[in-house]
């Protein structure tokens, strides 16, 4: 029974985050409808790609008549952060069977990653943390589909004055703000923040991956320097 409880706790714990991502999903659904996709194509996109950033880019580029290769490359680059999330989750998922690793990998999103790192990092047994993560991931995935369809069918009824799009950065702020306790994390965020704005002119959202890399390097250097300093 504890297995079901871990799953349920993960699922229920993610519901507030799902409410936070709901406006993002609505925006994706509105975009798919505006681009003239059928409802089942829109659902296929949200269910299989399962990435708000990639969905919005794909829809915009399709509507602009971009070639297939350009669309695929742009979405791939925007999704390169999943490589970093995968790397950061790898040590935690290592004790698990291969099938679990392959299944949990599909559910790896920004929100699932932030929650997963926190829960695995808290030192729970791997199996227990994995079931918790599975519950959280399925909560995110299913609510994402429901809200994408809601956005597809009725999203255009939401008035623009509500600034619902602002909920998207807010749910990322909720993920990142608790990180600002450790000095190297603050260094990583400040460098990454400067870089992403300074490099905003780069095509295909390359500024995202470049800034992320610079921030990670800066955080690691700060961590090493701090360690050397305290050892003296």
């Amino acid at each position: 029974m504890t297995a079901a409880r871990d799953f349920r706790e993960g699922f229920v714990g993610m519901i507030p985050v799902c409410i936070g991502t709901a406006p993002f999903a609505l925006v994706c659904g509105v975009g798919a409808a505006a681009a003239g996709a059928s409802w089942w194509s829109a659902l296929g996109m949200s269910a299989i790609m399962f990435s708000g950033a990639a969905q919005i880019l794909a829809v915009q580029l399709l509507a602009a008549g971009a070639p297939l290769a350009v669309i695929v490359l742009t979405c791939f680059v925007a999704g390169l952060r999943f490589l970093m999330y995968s790397a950061a989750m790898a040590p935690y998922l290592r004790p698990l069977p291969q099938r679990w690793q392959q299944g949990l990998a599909f559910l790896l999103t920004d929100q699932a990653f932030a929650a997963g790192v926190r829960h695995f990092g808290a030192g729970h047994p791997p199996r227990q943390a994995a079931r918790h993560y599975l519950g959280a991931g399925i909560a995110l995935w299913s609510s994402w589909q429901v809200m994408n369809l809601a956005g597809y069918f009725v999203g255009n009824l939401i008035p623009a004055t509500w600034s619902l799009d602002f909920a998207v950065p807010l749910c990322f702020i909720a993920l990142v703000a608790p990180q600002f306790r450790a000095m190297p994390s603050i260094v990583a965020a400040v460098i990454s923040g400067f870089a992403v704005l300074a490099l905003a002119g780069l095509p295909m959202k390359l500024n995202l991956i470049a800034a992320g890399t610079l921030g990670i390097v800066a955080g690691t250097v700060a961590d090493l320097a701090k360690e050397r300093w305290t050892r003296r």
Binding site: S185, I216, T220
Partner: peptide, 22 residues
Amino acid sequence: LLARAFRYVPAAMLTALVLPMV
């Protein structure tokens, strides 16, 4: 060294995602 670098993935990547949106 890589394991150490992974600790700063959330702070760096999430900040890079958020700032342009704001």
